[in-house]
Design a protein around this nucleic acid. Structure first.
Length: 466
RNA sequence: GCCCUCAUCGUCUAGCGGCUAGGACAGCGGAUUCUCAAUUCGUUAACCGGGGUUCGAUUCCCCGUGGGGGCACCA
């Protein structure tokens, strides 16, 4: 069987984390089966769809590395086709015109709610003579849905799910203004695009029964559905705008790597034995519907951080320098020597960061101009004693002919021993002189990266005058 | 209100009738160490409740409780 899947976001906002995971699962499923992954923008709601949202979604998908196949389908461009299908259904007798006004429908629902009955269209116009149609009311077109029996779908995640057909009403296919509803549009588009598997959020599960009725009314094959549970916030509440429902670009800005986010999202709601760190190749090889969990998962930044740190350590230095320079360069342009320092110091830097943002902050001292500003903790270390200690260290360091980490280390350890000092007691003053902070990569690596001249100058800046 | 659905450590999960209920993150303790990380060793911690079915239930069934979703001329 040819596998064709799609990701079909509606551009009424950014690409949020749940959507990103849905896209990822679809992409992996397609790649796993050597199938096709399509992108369709469901922009039929002209009021709420915006161009910036479309761009943000496309950018987000690209950033995540989920390349789609073929052209992007804009749902709004298919509206004439959707309307034509509605007309065919009318002609075939699988749909009918309904002249109920919105007020009548509201009253109907209010009455049903009061009586404790399910809120559904009662089928007033289903069998009524079209001759009774009021002349001044524009009708909607409704599906003539099956009323008896029940509908079962074999969901790839939830298993068989059955709903009694009396729970389903005659949904609107075409609005009074002639525009298609979402229910019609998705079904027609999925059929036209030959979608074989629909993998989407849980929130569509009960809609699936209505959609299945549209497929059947047209004699079309019903695709295989899989409904994945939604992602919740850390507190278990539904992800809302104020509850961490951030756009994917926010994660980039927070300093997460796309491969880390992919790995995290994959594990959130999908498992493969004990596998935790999963490469994209492995993900493609292993991904299956069976592994998708049935219960909603909470988003956990601590685990994302851990994974991100892992991928940061794996990442190419050149790439990281580029990302860091982008952040640091926003304040001041970075000099060539600064860039060189970032390159050379990156091994030491990336081992200590969880996010690109943190990496950039930790790297700042390499590109900072003298004299360095000491942070609060560093200031506490910069006592008069520490300053005079630095003064005594200066000639020892300056005397080194060979500027290399191991040479500097043995020189300073030797000096500490001679002076009867613990090595740690001179390491911290040196660290704050070199980096302005109480934590940094190893001081000998820092010295090597900064070079003799800059190292001596930074120490001299802080050393007590002799 | 009606319908659908879910339920294992704090979190993500493994388990698919018989296990000392496993792993990962976080936490805690130790080792290492020039700081912070990384690394490494160890450790705390879970089957929502009640009924069944069965020789035996985390696992199957029912009820309850709790969470989520849907019930539009939104998508």
């Amino acid at each position: 069987m040819t596998v064709t899947v799609r990701f079909a976001p509606s551009p009424t906002g950014f690409l949020h984390i749940g959507g990103a995971r849905t896209a990822l699962f679809n992409w992996l499923f397609a790649r796993h089966h050597g199938g096709t992954f399509r992108l369709r923008i469901e922009d039929t709601d002209k009021q709420r769809s915006t161009k910036p949202a479309i761009d943000a979604i496309i950018e987000g998908i690209k950033w995540l590395g989920l390349e789609w196949d073929g052209e992007i389908v804009m749902q709004s461009e298919q509206m004439a086709r959707h309307a034509a299908v509605a007309a065919e259904m009318l002609a075939a007798g699988t749909a009918y015109r309904c002249y109920c006004s919105p007020t009548e429908l509201e009253d109907m629902r209010a009455r049903q709610k009061a009586e404790g009955k399910p809120m559904r269209y009662d089928g007033t116009w289903r069998d009524r003579d079209p001759a009774d149609a009021p002349a001044d009311v524009a009708p909607v077109i409704r599906l003539k849905a099956p009323r008896d029996g029940s509908t079962t779908i074999e969901d790839g995640v939830q298993g068989p799910v059955t709903v009694s057909n009396d729970q389903l009403d005659d949904l609107v296919l075409l609005r009074a203004d002639g525009s298609p509803t979402y229910m019609l549009s998705v079904v027609v588009d999925d059929h036209d695009m030959a979608i074989s598997h629909v993998i989407r959020g849980d929130d569509h599960l009960t809609n699936t029964f209505r959609q299945a009725a549209i497929y059947r009314a047209n004699g079309w094959d019903v695709p295989h559905f899989s409904h994945i549970p939604l992602i919740h916030g850390a507190d278990g509440a539904k992800l809302s705008k104020r509850h961490g429902a951030l756009g994917i670009e926010a994660y980039r800005e927070m300093g997460y790597l796309p491969e880390a986010l992919r790995n995290y999202l994959l594990r959130l709601g999908w498992g493969h034995g004990d596998a935790e760190v999963i490469s994209t190749e492995e993900a493609i090889a292993w991904f299956d519907l069976d592994g998708i969990g049935r219960s909603p998962a909470r988003f956990d930044f601590a685990k994302l951080d851990n994974l991100n740190g892992h991928y940061l350590r794996q990442a190419e230095n050149t790439r990281l320098v580029g990302l860091v320079a982008e952040i640091l360069g926003a304040d001041h342009p970075i000099s060539q020597t600064g860039l060189a320092c970032l390159h050379q110091g990156m091994d030491g830097l990336k081992a200590r960061a969880k996010t690109v943002k943190e990496l950039a902050e930790n790297a700042r001292f390499y590109v900072a101009a003298r004299p360095l500003t000491l942070d609060a903790k560093a200031q506490a270390v910069a006592t008069p004693e520490a300053r005079s200690l630095l003064a005594t260290l200066l000639p020892v360091i300056a005397a080194q002919e060979i500027w290399a980490a191991d040479v500097l280390e043995s020189a300073l350890r030797g000096h500490a021993e001679q002076a009867g000092l613990k090595f740690g007691s001179l390491a911290q003053p040196l660290r704050i002189a070199l980096s302005g902070s109480t934590m940094s990569p190893g001081i000998f690596d820092v010295m090597t990266v900064l070079g003799r001249e800059e190292t001596l100058a930074r120490i001299a800046d802080l050393a007590a005058p002799i």
